[in-house]
Structures are given as C-alpha cells and as structure tokens.
Amino acid sequence: MTYSLLVRCPNSGRFGIAMASYSIAIGRLTDGIRANVGVSVSQGFPNPANNPLAMNLLAAGFTAAHTLNDLIVNDPRSDWRQVVVVDRTGAVAVKDGGKLRPWSGHMTGEAAVAAGDMLSGPAVLTAMLQAYASQPAAVLEDRLLLALEAGRDAGGEKGKTGPLRERSAAVVVCANDDYTEWDLRVDQHDGAIAELRRVHAEYQPHAAYYIERARNPHKAVPAMEFADTLKASRA
C-alpha cells in the first residue's frame, strides 16, 4: 500500500526517491539510496533488508537487472514484494510480485520508475510520471514532491472498503556525498503529503544555510537568529 517514484536525474546524476503510504513511517524504507551507486526499494509487503543489499550489489558494479535478480533469488517471499532498482547509468529493473494486492504495477519513464500497490488504478502512476516530467528544469526534490501530489490527486491508494488516505510520506535525494542531500519525512499525519509540502517549503530557505554555517562557522549566524530574520522578512 505504497506509491513511489525512483529516479536518476539525467541532468545532475543525482538519485531520488519519493514515497507515500497508508503504512506509518514509510520513510524508514528510503535508506536504499547512495551517491554514484543507485536507488532501490522493496515495497508491497516490504523487506527492508533488500534496500542495503541492493546498494551493496550496485556498489560492487552489478547492473540494475542483475541486482534485481539477486534480490529475488535471495528472498523466499519475493512474490509479496515489489522491487525497484535504478543503477548509476539510469538503467531500471522492476519486479511486481504475483501476490501483491491490486491494483499493483509500475511504469517507467526516462531513468525513472513509478510503482505501487493497492492503488486506485494505473492513473496514479501515469500522473506521477507526468508530473515528474512536467518541470525538467526544477530541482529534483521539487519534482519528486510534485509527483507525490499528482499520485495522490489521481486517486492514491485504495483498500477493501474504498480509498485509503496516505499517512506517511518522504522525499530523499542523494548527490555526491556519503549522506543524503535532501531528506524530509512525515511519519504519521492525516494528510501526509500536504504536511510534507509544508515541511518542504519551510526547510527550503534553510538548506543552504545549514551547509554554509558548517563550512564557515566563524562567520555563521546562529540558527535562531537566522530563523528570526527569515520570519521578519516574511512579515
């Protein structure tokens, strides 16, 4: 009961993952992302162990297709998983397990995969890929968030008795460092994607500040002072 978009940005080589789910704290599954290596997730009935394993396989030089195959062979319950792998060349590999709950499936774009299970229908994935492609010049984190919003607006998730509202969401981007560059989550909220948009907008003006104060601590403005100035500039 999740919909996701995994991409390699053709402009920058950055990797990104966006997820939304009826499950809580879905962002705990976004750790399958590594600079210059790739991005991967196992969802459906998730096996979180697949994500670090996928990173190790991709880092060893295996392709997305080979990595996917290894993950499936290694997991006796792979029929219940939906596994997505994107490698450093932008090649993608996806497997929708046969036991996923309907509607489940995936669609691929340019170095991009939208995938989900328990969706209201394929329109969710179409909308995500369209939204992602609609602003090619925007920064990756913005494009990923747009895709989540589009997936939600196209119907999102659906359970036995009707629509299921997403309760958690996350957007994570990795650039060149051995830590994530953009990494925001909402773990449990009635409108998780709208709440993620709020956090996203609030974090945006801080992003460069957090980097700069580390590089240049002698000249850094204290965080609270920075926040006060920001608040005053908006008033």
């Binding site: 994530t180 990494d183 925001l184 989550r185 609030e202 974090y203």
Partner: peptide
C-alpha cells in the same frame, strides 16, 4: 533546526 533526523 528542521528535520534533525535527516542525519541518518
């Protein structure tokens, strides 16, 4: 600061 948990 916002999102201290991004320091994973």
């Amino acid at each position: 600061s916002i999102a201290c948990g991004r320091r994973n």
